[in-house]
Write a protein that binds this DNA or RNA. Structure first.
Lengths: 339, 339
DNA sequence: GGGGTGGCCACAAGCGGTTACATGAAATAA
DNA sequence: TTATTTCATGTAACCGCTTGTGGCCACCCC
């Protein structure tokens, strides 16, 4: 039922080899021949068979995106940037989830789902210690990571340490001294972002001559509910923090909610700052360090395409700048004289 | 560099045909032979070449998901359900965006991105009048839609009319009489959900003997900002509504924000109800009609797989039940005597 | 014991492209 | 003029799997 390259060749009066070259824009084809072939192909409504092309050439023309979550803001936003670039480049995007997506364990080997099916792989924000990540890297094909850095593998991230410092310094500048932090999870399989942001927090405090009080750290597991619980825990301290740095906006949303539940006003009684630039942060009036997430995906996809074309990976991690956006959830230390 | 079926055949002392049948679980293979082949294949770390298999069999083993947006709650949540099922079924998921994703126009033909590359297509919530949707249907391959219904094409949706009735009836039951609605956009290319929900709204009002006042309809374009603007417009009426039905949770979020900006308390001064069951709705204390979005994707994928296996599409639309979840954003008509 | 009847398997012809190599003509150099 | 490139195109051997056809053998039934 399908038109084949042979039909086009016949109709154009050339060999299939010429049709192949003409349609793919290869050199050594007479311009008039090329145009004739293109015309015939489009008249016949010819569509190349990807399977045949892939089999013969060894290239698949597709890129896999591997992610631990699909239905979470950061991940689907990255994905959307990636999709945009890949579509532009006429590449297929093969999407696959690993890890415990949707709270279900999914630890089946990922390599068989990828081998021989794609030319390159893009991995979004999994913990560097993830065994499935190892599998992927061991496949030895062009790979790039987004939101995490693995030595020897190209990556695109923000400078998480700097972002956290920025957020924390903002709180320090507002006069806060007793600073809390809402982390991801207690050390097991941390994301790169997680440990780096904690590091930045500590650095900023230390630089300002402040102590890092481990009692003021709670864990929110990067969810809203978790953030709420963490904030509640912090508020139940004998001397609660006056300002809290949440490692992600979603946890900060939960924290805001906990504040409200305690009758405390964000930015007045307690300040909260997040990291992400989540869509909702503006609407919840959250101060946050914005990272250009769509761009992260776009840049990673683009650099991967370059790598595919040139064969030379960009090994130095690509760092994308962030920006502090001050909103109502942060304010001066209560009782601080400002007149 | 890759191990081929020939290597396996040699090592197992059988023909490639037998290897092919053995590994795919086809009948007419001796159990002992099958086991031997499987053993050899796994010893050799053999991975079948999808391109070759596709070329020879004509089946691609992949399903396309076509969506107008990736980074929006409804769409990525559906996608995650779809991915889950497809992965389980060992099918590749080819993701492609159409329409104006990320506010950029993208009206390039979608058929060439799909033809010969997938066995079936899943389309998420595009307007039924979308020309790209026509293209897809005209491809004539197994197709199913999620969140919209096209005559003759299998679909999975909620009963949008009923959902809207449910929401509206809830407001009526609370004593509200002057009801506003935040719609998508003024009539041009409406989503199925859009027109159906408007219909349900009208039905409920009419059934309660109330008028549908066109002045109390504003448009929010399914975004938070749009919802906020729409609510602001409604509030500027000489006689603003006491309760508003928003066609989506995201628009309802915007409406809540507009209320707050006007110093009005949701559920006390003005009631707001949405549709979706968005992740954030609980945290924003929004009353909403919850639709099981992940399930929508899951069910659609499953029925598509059945169709692929049996060859018989389920033509009657599959309707998934919804549920009204009452939260703080709706309350009795202000001034209504309740003692 | 001859003619089914199945079960298991090998043979080999595709599937629809890509690409190394060959060819021949025109252009250029010697 | 002849030898040498250069360019456009054709030839044909794959790429690695699937599947229709047919062979062989064991078993069964009259």
């Amino acid at each position: 039922m399908g038109i084949t390259i042979r039909d086009v060749a016949e109709a154009a009066g050339v060999s299939t080899a010429t049709v192949s070259r003409a349609l793919r824009g290869l050199p050594n084809v007479d311009e008039r021949t090329r145009r004739r072939v293109q015309q015939v192909a489009s008249d016949l409504d010819y569509v190349i068979s990807p399977s045949a092309s892939r089999l013969a050439s060894g290239r698949t023309g597709s890129v896999a995106v591997v992610t631990p979550y699909i239905a979470r803001w950061f991940f689907c936003t990255v994905l959307s940037g990636v999709e945009d670039v890949l579509q532009e480049a006429d590449m297929d995007l093969l999407l696959t989830c690993i890890g415990d997506h949707n709270n279900q364990l999914n630890r089946s080997p990922v390599a068989p789902r990828l081998r021989r099916r794609v030319d390159a792989i893009l991995v979004i924000a999994v913990p560097p210690s993830d065994p499935q990540l190892r599998e992927i890297i061991d496949l030895g094909m062009p790979t790039s990571t987004i939101g995490l850095t693995v030595p020897g593998v190209p990556s695109v991230t923000i400078d998480d340490v700097a972002a956290a410092r920025l957020a924390t310094q903002h709180l320090i500048n507002l006069g806060h001294r007793r600073m809390g932090i809402i982390g991801g999870s207690p050390s097991e399989a941390p994301f790169t972002a997680e440990s780096d942001r904690e590091k930045g927090f500590s650095q900023a405090l230390t630089a300002a001559g402040l102590d890092v009080d481990p009692i003021l750290e709670a864990f929110g597991y990067f969810t809203i509910e978790g953030g709420e619980a963490a904030m509640t825990a912090l508020l139940s301290q004998p001397t609660p923090p006056t300002a809290v740095f949440a490692l992600s906006d979603e946890m900060a949303f939960g924290a805001l909610r906990a504040l409200r539940a305690h009758g405390l006003r964000p930015g007045v009684d307690v300040s909260i700052v997040g990291v992400d630039g989540h869509d909702m942060s503006e609407h919840l009036d959250l101060t946050t360090v914005v990272q250009p997430v769509t761009e992260l995906g776009r840049i990673a996809a683009e650099s991967l395409l370059v790598q595919l074309r040139e064969g030379t990976p960009t090994l130095e991690p690509i760092r994308v700048p962030t920006q502090l956006v001050v909103r109502g959830s942060t304010g001066p230390l209560p009782g601080l004289s400002r007149d």
